Amino acid sequence: MKQLFSLILATLLTISAFAQSGGYQVGDKVADFSLQSTDGSSVSLSNFASAKTVVLVFTNNQCPYAKLYENRLVTLASSYGAKGVQFVFINPGAADPGETLQDMASRKYRPYLADETQEVSRQFGATKTPEVFVLHNDGGEFTLKYKGAIDDNPQLESGVKNFYLKSVIDELLANRPVSAGDKRATGCLIKKY
Rank of each mutant, 00 (worst) to 15 (best):
K83M: 10
S167A: 14
S78M: 08
K29I: 00
A31H: 09
V160C: 12
F87V: 14
K191C: 05
L172Y: 07
S6R: 11
E157D: 13
L4K: 08
L12Q: 07
L135T: 00
A49P: 00
K108Y: 03
N61T: 15
N91D: 14
C188T: 05
S121M: 11
I190Q: 09
F33R: 09
V57M: 13
F33P: 09
K191F: 11
R176H: 09
Q86K: 14
D182M: 12
A180H: 03
K192Q: 15
F48Y: 15
G93K: 09
D170Q: 13
G22L: 13
D103G: 06
D115S: 07
N162L: 09
D28E: 08
A94L: 08
N61L: 04
R107M: 12
S50M: 05
P64N: 07
S16T: 13
M104L: 06
Y193K: 13
S41V: 07
L172F: 11
S16H: 12
P64A: 13
Q25G: 12
F18N: 13
E70L: 08
K183R: 15
I15H: 03
T11Y: 08
E157I: 03
G159R: 10
T14L: 15
T186N: 09
Y193N: 14
K192M: 13
L9A: 14
M104Y: 02
I150G: 00
A51D: 02
Y164W: 11
A77L: 07
G159A: 11
R122W: 09
G181M: 12
V132G: 03
V160I: 13
P154L: 01
D182H: 14
L101F: 10
S106Y: 06
L165Y: 01
A114D: 08
S21A: 15
A66H: 00
R176M: 10
Q86F: 00
T127Y: 02
F48G: 01
L101P: 01
I8C: 07
K52H: 10
E131F: 00
N91C: 12
I150E: 00
V85Y: 03
F89E: 01
